[in-house]
């Protein structure tokens, strides 16, 4: 449904997107992940026809967005990173205007607006000026305008940025619902979000794709190691020492109340570990395989990439800074499994 071929975009001398290719199949929800300045928004702006590529092509359905932009745009719903609101309009007037612009027939406008208002739970704010809405509701109005013409393709640039945790989880649910019969490309720098909403992830860094796969496969691909989280009823230091002595175990770390045991992916020391604990008379109360969280995958990939090509790219890269990961950490409460693992590290 969306096909990107050798896409490159320069802003003057600065290379924002560097020869990337990927595709999103019909009905897929794909996460587009990367630090700020990685080229996510630029790529999305090219897909939606807002910008022209310097080289390469973007296809939406059968339409090349450089030459048949108008036809392509009919199939796309787009929520830019900065929610495009006319703050002097009410929710109703705004959605009616966008509906008309997006080609909804005059007679159908009222009905479509009612539908999306209900879908995005905006009924209470029907006749409120957009200037008076909170950030979260503005975001929802933004989502509402993007689906007003019932598009096959949805491009969402950071759809949950800057809204509070309860609204974040509602928005994610909404996106999941929307994705049931649509193709969605969603960008984010909030890692748990992507792992919860998306089936597949494309990780972009400094304008290049550094990884593209399902989250599970990315996890094993990057790490080459597996980890077990154990809960053992016994003196922590002794337990750690005993575990380290088990053949095949590469490392043990203790973080109250769990021991984290690391070993190569092709080793399977589970039996030996259990035996070692029982031999000393302790009780094993929990054992769980830890998959690598997206944060870890992300960090590994992006730092690896830095090492590979620090020769020519110094001029434009935005480094992933601590604030970014901090943001991701803040999401933990609503973020389910992936984030919990991230938080416990």
């Amino acid at each position: 449904m969306i096909r990107i071929e050798n896409l490159t975009k320069y802003y003057g001398e600065r290379r924002a997107v560097d020869d990337i290719s990927f595709s999103v199949e019909q009905g897929e929800i794909v996460g587009f992940l990367g630090p700020n300045g990685a080229g996510k928004s630029t790529t999305m702006r090219i897909i939606t026809g807002f910008l022209m590529p310097t080289r390469g092509d973007a296809w939406v359905g059968d339409h090349n967005m450089a030459t048949e932009s108008l036809q392509g745009r009919r199939h796309i719903g787009y929520l830019p990173e900065v929610v495009p609101l006319y703050t002097d309009m009410t929710t109703r007037a705004y959605l009616e205007y966008v509906a008309r612009l997006r080609g909804v027939e005059r007679r159908a406008v009222r009905g479509r607006v009612d539908d999306v208002v209900q879908q995005c739970a905006l009924e209470e704010y029907y006749d409120v000026l957009l200037a008076k809405l909170s950030k979260g509701f503005r975001q929802r109005v933004g989502l509402a305008q993007s689906i007003i013409h019932d598009p096959e393709v949805l491009i969402l640039d950071e759809p949950t940025i800057g809204i509070d945790p309860i609204q974040v989880s509602q928005t994610r649910q909404l996106i999941r619902d929307l994705g049931k019969n649509r193709t969605i490309l969603l960008s984010s720098h909030i890692l748990p979000e992507v792992s919860m909403v998306c089936e597949r992830v494309i990780i972009i860094h400094q304008g290049r794709i550094v990884a593209e796969d399902s989250i599970d496969r990315l996890s094993t691909m990057v790490s080459g190691a597996e980890r077990l989280r154990l809960r053992v009823d016994g003196p922590a230091d002794d337990v750690a020492a005993a575990l380290e002595a088990v053949p095949g175990v590469a490392g043990v770390t203790f973080s109250e109340p769990n021991h984290l045991v690391e070993f190569a992916a092709d080793e399977h020391p589970h039996g030996e570990i259990t035996a070692a604990i029982m031999a000393r008379g302790w009780t094993l109360t929990g054992m769980e395989t830890v998959t690598m969280s997206l944060e870890e995958i992300f960090l590994q990939l992006t730092t690896k990439d830095d090492d590979d090509d620090d020769d020519d790219d110094d001029s434009y890269g935005d480094e992933l800074d601590d604030d970014e990961l901090g943001d991701a950490g803040d999401e933990d409460e609503t973020a389910g499994e992936g984030a919990e693992q991230g938080a416990e590290r």
Binding site: R45, T48, G49, F50, L70, Q71, R73, R74, I76, Y78, P80, V82, V83, P84, L85, Y86, T87, V98, L101, R102, G103, Q145
Partner: peptide, 14 residues
Amino acid sequence: KVGTWELLLTVPVR
């Protein structure tokens, strides 16, 4: 300035 330009240029309007 406010970003609505991005909306206007991505709707099917010449």
